[in-house]
Design a protein around this nucleic acid. Sequence first.
DNA 1: CAGTAG
DNA 2: GGGCCTTACTG
DNA 3: GCCC
Length: 787
Amino acid sequence: MIFEEEEMDDKDEYFRQLYALNDSSDEEEDTNNAREILKQSSRPPSSSFSVSSHSFSARRSQPSKTLGNISAIHRTTSAPASSTSVVRETPLLTRKSSKLRYDISTPEMNQTFSASTPPTLSSIPAPAPQRSVSTSELDTGPKLNMVPSAGINAMLSKPDERKKRKRKETPVILVPERERIFAGKTIFFIPPNDKHSVREARITNAMKYGATWTKKWTPDITHIIVDKEYKFEQIMGMLKPLMKTDSIPQNIILVNDKYTVDCIRDKILVDETQSRYIIRRDVPVTEEQEIRQPAEPRKALRIQRRKSKKDQDTPDDHTQRSEASTQSQHPQDQPDSSPGVWLPTTNAEPPVIVESPRERSPMLDVALGEGSELDTAIAEIMRFGDLPLDDDDDEEERPSSSEGNTDPDHDGSSEEDLRPRRRTKKRKKFQKQGDANSAAYVCMTGGTGITDETNPNRHTIQILEKMSKYYGRMSDTWRELSYRKACGTLRKQGVWICTFDQAFELPFIGERIATKIEEIAITGHLRRLDNAELEPEDHLLKLFLGIYNVGPVEASKFIRAGYKTLDDLRTKARLTKCQQIGLDHYDDFATRIPRDQMTALGEIVKAMAKPIDPDVNPIIGGSYRRGAKDSGDIDFIFTKPGTTHAHDLHYFLSSLVSRLTSTGFLTCALATPSHRRDDDSGSKWHGACVLPGNPIWRRIDFLLVPESEIGAALIYFTGDDIFNRSMRLLASRKNMRLNQRGLYKDLMRGPGRLKLNEGELVEGSDEKRIFEILGVPWKKPENRICH
DNA sequence: CAGTAG
DNA sequence: GGGCCTTACTG
DNA sequence: GCCC
């Protein structure tokens, strides 16, 4: 499988070509594709909600930090396995190892990659690239075809420009032609991506042995290889929309993930009808039974938990109920119409797992360390798969796993295995010190810089965000908050979260949201939301809430008053001045500001500020500082060296406002420091502005910040608000207080965190110091996106 | 004070 | 069972 | 809704 010495020169180019192929099938595409599949499933397989990956929870619930799990890796690496000694799984191990910078025992591979593997951080997508994914792109998505040797030879003859492309994938090295057992075979993997390290290895291996890997449904598919956690019904739910038939064509071999491994081991296309390759069916359960068919005792607790609380909801219990009812579908609803053809033995018992040591279990654990470690860790996990592939044999590895613990918490390791599931895990994993559990503070982990465009969970996030907004409209503050936090968690995941178990393990995702995540992953949408947005009042609420200075209370009043349109409000409703403006420019304020316009607005203000006081330093905060590609409004922070009070800058603000107003840049004032309290509190100015040549009014905020408070102010006005709130909560748990002016210590709080004194100012001017003092790993603005 | 916004 | 950020401004 |  390794090239001869004389071929080495060409190898780089060969790799380059392969990389090109791999790259083109990167991230967004395959996850998108995967989702497309699910999305097209008009009706989720009834069993879908009972599918869970036990293996996953099993592995995930182990407290060890996989990234630090050296021993496990080595063990696997050095244990060639009895039954699987065949295939060289080295690519996987090598890949992991190189990423993790562990030395491993595969010299030739090492030499190939250790030097060229880019630093982990470089694999984080740039914050702002706007890579839009079009469906056409998907449809025409390149297909990896490693088969034609002529093409390969052609590739091999271009040794130049080898450095142009960054290597990010393990190259596929074809075995000698006669050994290519999969030559001419086109394989469709489920899930149709290589985001999971083990699946990736499987795909790579298959390609090494001549397979063509396709991510989209094509007529020439010969094999479908399914990850073992998928049940038959679930697969059919995914495939039917693709195939446009109710059954899998007879010429297609559908088998589980053992198949390719065995084929490669035996160097032959093994008999696919063996029971060990059969995709399991869901064991039918009665309605009364737990939806998630417990297959392991470990699950018992969760089941109990799921059953337990049937809510004390007030605002939306009707929908809650409907939601619950829709969930209890019966697996047997699912028509057994599914084809028997490809299933050699219908309803065969799940094959006994014979295999033992396979590829090492993927490192799915979100090792959320702290400090710079965090980003590295996140970068690491981003490469790994989205689904558990291993189970069964994971258990044994556990003890050793817990030793290679890179996590900051060294305490309480005793309880880990006793504590069932995530209680243990979440706490262990994120806990940092006694008083402040990091899991509760998003600010500890921040964002990853994974952009919306490339995030494998972006579709889920979109829907959950809609849920959040829906609850916001319903004035259900806390559910709104919960959903936003859950979105923040998902946003940080580099892998597609598509099962309940996966989701449930994550911070801020409880059973209810986890259930929804799975539903979204499988069906592509959320019935709860579909219903919610059908509510007639919701439409109006959404409409009225779009008005600046109209919140849930006002909007509800409008609705109760019988207003149906914005025109109704214009003509009939009594509005405040600000609301009037908000209404007049309803569409304007709803329009996002592209980043280049943000910059342009910034230049105008800066140009105006300069002559007033060249020492004043204008900073654009908000989402712009976080690197957003567009923003809802523009925030300016004005600070000046030597200042200690906002008052020191009042002259500047009034001059600036007056000048900008006279040029027509500022179009109105919405909230300005009225000196009703004549302390120097008036430090902010809200209004609207226009970019010359553009009629759209934009919301603009000015904030005066003395130099002594600039650090705290930057934090505050950079946000995002979830990040801020979490940071402040963390501060308060440490008997401190964080606001836009500074970080204060020795704060006394009474019952209900009631503030008893002001506390003593510890830091206000240095943004990083505030992070430090709070024990929060420094986050660049673009990594503070938490909602 | 409630409501809204940041 | 209770907390869930904190401050500023408006009317 | 999640977390303690």
